[in-house]
Structures are given as C-alpha cells and as structure tokens.
C-alpha cells in the first residue's frame, strides 16, 4: 500500500482506522437524550424560518442562477441564515470575510430587521446605461439591473439586510480581491474583474444593517461614483 509524505500509514489504512473510530464515536453517543432537551422558542422559530426561507429563496435564486449563467454575474447575495441568538452574538463581530477556495465569503451577524428594505436608485450612472429591471430577491435583498447601450454589458446594484447573517459570495471565477477603498464615508472591498470582465465593489452601511454591492465592467472610479450616488428612489 502506498504510504505518502513519509507517514507510516497509507490513506487506505487511514480510511479503515477512521471508519473504526467513526463507529466507536457513534456507539458512545446516546441514542436519545433522556429527558429530551426542549428547544427554546427562539431556536424553533429560527429553524422554521430557515426552512421557510430556503423554500422562498429557491425561486429567486433559480432566477439569479439563470442570470449568472447567461450574464456571468460574479456576485451572488443570498439569504443563508446562520441563525444565532442575538444575545449570544454580543461577543462576536458584526461581519467577517473569509477566503474559501479562492472565493470570498461574507457572513454577517445581526438582529432580525423589523423594517422594509428601502427602495433605492442610483443618482449617477454612466451615460450609456439604461434601466432594465428590479428584482426583489425575497424581502431581504434587491437587485437593480442596468444595461449599456454601447457594449451591452450589465451593471448590477444589489443590496440587502445583513440581519440573521446573510451570506454573500464573490466568486474567484470572475473577480479576485484587490484592495480596500473609501466608499460613501466608509470602506469597501474592490474586486477587479478577471480577464477584462466585470469588477465588483462590496461595502456595508453598518448603522442601517445593509450590505451593498455593485458589479460592472467599469473602472473603480466609476463604480465608486455610482455607489456614492445611491439615494432613496423618487
């Protein structure tokens, strides 16, 4: 049997040992806790919400996936709940960024919002972009889509609540992390597009608990200008 990296055991031997230990681990655990733990109302509510939201999210994400396939969208903001109790969150950061397999994943911790997502519109857009459509991806996030008359490329503005730990992923297929840049009085992460593709800007309004992203085949300066021009829709 092949033994790699100077280890005195092969992967096959390790598999057998792991299987033995896995079984021993399960055998040592109780079949049922007596008396069973009565989960808190908050836990039950959040688990119900998780399943309900996953169901609701399907339609939106399918659509988004369709868009992604056709338009090569790099940023997918979706509502995966991390579901933790707000009080227990006190010791943790509000959001964090993780590099996973070249992708960048944002996860957020925050109280459940009690308000409707504000309707926003760009106060500035490059001249050649025309409004296409707005898509409410559940009541937690909104996607505004614009297309250029000149080169047919799209500009996406996506924003949504950071509550209950929404997850956002910037995939490395299209853009990789570049730099931190000032945006609208805060800082954002800029991901230059790969191979001349669209770039992505991600930033947060911590006070309002809203995450924003813009994806467009334009330079940093233009994208930041669009970001800073966002305003309540008229």
């Amino acid at each position: 049997m092949k033994k790699e990296d100077n280890f005195p055991f092969s992967d096959r031997e390790l598999e057998q040992a792991a299987e033995q230990l896995g079984r021993a681990m399960l055998d040592a655990l109780p079949e049922a806790d007596e008396p069973p733990h009565v989960f808190s109302e908050s836990f039950e509510k959040k688990m119900d919400a998780l399943l309900r939201k996953e169901r609701t999210r399907q339609a939106g994400l399918r659509w988004v996936r369709g868009v992604a396939a056709v338009l090569a969208v790099a940023l997918i903001l979706s509502g995966t709940w991390l579901l933790t109790d707000t009080e227990a969150r006190a010791d943790f950061r509000r959001w964090y960024r993780n590099a996973i397999g070249g992708d960048t994943v944002y996860r957020y911790y925050g109280a459940e919002h009690g308000e409707a997502l504000p309707a926003l519109e760009p106060g500035y857009l490059p001249e050649d972009y025309r409004y296409q459509k707005s898509l409410a991806e559940t009541d937690y996030s909104m996607r505004l889509i614009y297309q250029s008359d000149e080169d047919g490329t799209f500009l996406f503005i996506v924003y949504g609540f950071m509550d209950e730990a929404t997850e956002g992923t910037v995939t490395s297929d299209f853009a990789t992390y570049g730099e931190t840049v000032p945006v609208a009085g805060t800082v954002g992460d800029f991901y230059p597009g790969s191979d001349g593709g669209s770039s992505v800007l991600v930033w947060f309004d911590e006070e309002a608990g809203i995450q924003f992203s813009i994806q467009a085949n334009r330079d940093l300066e233009t994208i930041v200008k669009v970001a800073e021009g966002l305003r309540p829709a008229s």
């Binding site: 989960f39 991390l82 009080e87 227990a88």
Partner: peptide, 26 residues
C-alpha cells in the same frame, strides 16, 4: 437532540449549545 447533546458537552449553557446546533444545521 443528538447534536444538542454533543454541543452541550462542550459549551457552558443551553443557549450556546442551541447556537452551535443552528450553525451546524446551516
């Protein structure tokens, strides 16, 4: 229930253990 049991063996209170179970399910 099993997952709660596992989490509770390591964490000091039920609320923390429920947090761990929720995160694990995600």
């Amino acid at each position: 229930q099993l997952m709660f049991f596992v989490a509770r063996r390591m964490l000091p209170c039920d609320a923390d253990a429920e947090d761990a179970v929720q995160q694990a399910f995600v």
